[in-house]
């Protein structure tokens, strides 16, 4: 959890807007540090978190969260966190050893044309089962609103899932998590290549999700090239429905990722430049 980002987004673990769909995207840079921020943020906010970790192993997320002061293993034991480890699950489909054992959530890997319905079922059941359990056992710890985190959605395209299926998945998830359960959702999409190239999978996905989301954080490398002390810039864009029209507000910051956090500053005000 980065304090500076919290003040930019005007949220703290105690007070944050519910029902938000936050889109994190990047191009020629790496935005995964923001996923770690949101993971530790929502765990501290005592939300119930469902994390779809598709690109890294659990130990990676756990080691980074440790540096940010949150223990994933404890959260998992307490039932606060449901962690879906895509890498581990995929092995049982890609190199089948036993007859069964593969989680149905990873079914799309067997035949990508069926779409992500089973993955959505997994999300829905794990987040709403929280609800019923809480009602059943009053003695158990009470958790706040449910949160879904996805790292990252664009890897599904590399695994053969179509853009339409991925957009359907995010739409269903936002309907369930954000509207129905009044929780939050954070998705990461990584794009490659230049912006000019049009009908390309990850770009179409990004456009579709930008349309769905309520807050987007877009990370890019510096337009002037690589720099050691400024790792890139992040554009924060709020989209609010106010009355008739759609009100958008944009802010641009530069950032640097440290060992145990990240700092954000206005353009050109890096401590190395001043």
């Amino acid at each position: 959890m980065y304090v500076e980002l919290n003040s930019i987004l005007n949220s703290t673990p105690d007070t944050f807007t519910q029902g938000e769909f936050i889109l994190v995207s990047d191009r020629r840079s790496d935005a995964s540090f923001l996923i770690h921020h949101f993971l530790s943020f929502y765990l501290r906010a005592r939300c119930r978190v469902c994390f779809l970790g598709l690109v890294q192993s659990f130990s990676h997320y756990s080691a980074v969260s440790q540096r940010l002061g949150v223990s994933l293993t404890q959260a998992k034991e307490k039932g606060q966190l449901i962690f879906f480890e895509g890498l581990k699950e995929s092995l049982s489909v890609l190199v089948p050893r036993d007859a069964n054992g593969a989680s149905p959530a990873i079914n799309f890997l067997r035949d990508p044309s069926v779409g992500l319905r089973s993955l959505y079922e997994f999300v829905r059941s794990s987040l709403s089962s929280f609800n019923s359990r809480e009602k059943a056992a009053d003695g158990a710890e009470e958790w706040g609103p449910p949160v879904l985190l996805v790292d990252d959605l664009s890897v599904l395209l590399s695994l053969g899932v179509s853009v339409g299926a991925a957009l359907d998945f995010s739409h269903y998830c936002s309907a369930t998590v954000c509207s129905q359960l009044q929780g939050n959702m954070v998705m990461l999409v990584r794009c490659d290549g230049e912006e000019e190239e049009e009908d390309e999978g990850s770009d179409r996905l990004l456009k579709g999700l930008t349309h769905q989301c309520s807050l987007s954080l877009h990370v890019e490398g510096l337009p002037t090239g690589y720099c050691r002390d400024i790792h890139g810039q992040v554009e924060v864009c709020w989209r609010k429905r106010r009355g008739e029209g759609l009100h958008t507000q944009k802010k641009l910051f530069q950032y640097k990722v440290h060992d145990k956090g990240a700092s954000f500053f206005a353009r050109g005000t890096s401590s190395t430049v001043l």
Binding site: S57, S59, L87, K88, S90, L91, L94, V95, L109, P112, V155, S158, L159, G160
Partner: peptide, 18 residues
């Protein structure tokens, strides 16, 4: 086979991580 190599690399990563 647009996704053949990427899917293989995904499996390879899964295998190597453990």
């Amino acid at each position: 086979h647009r996704h053949a190599l990427t899917t293989f690399l995904y499996g390879l990563r899964a295998l190597l991580r453990s």
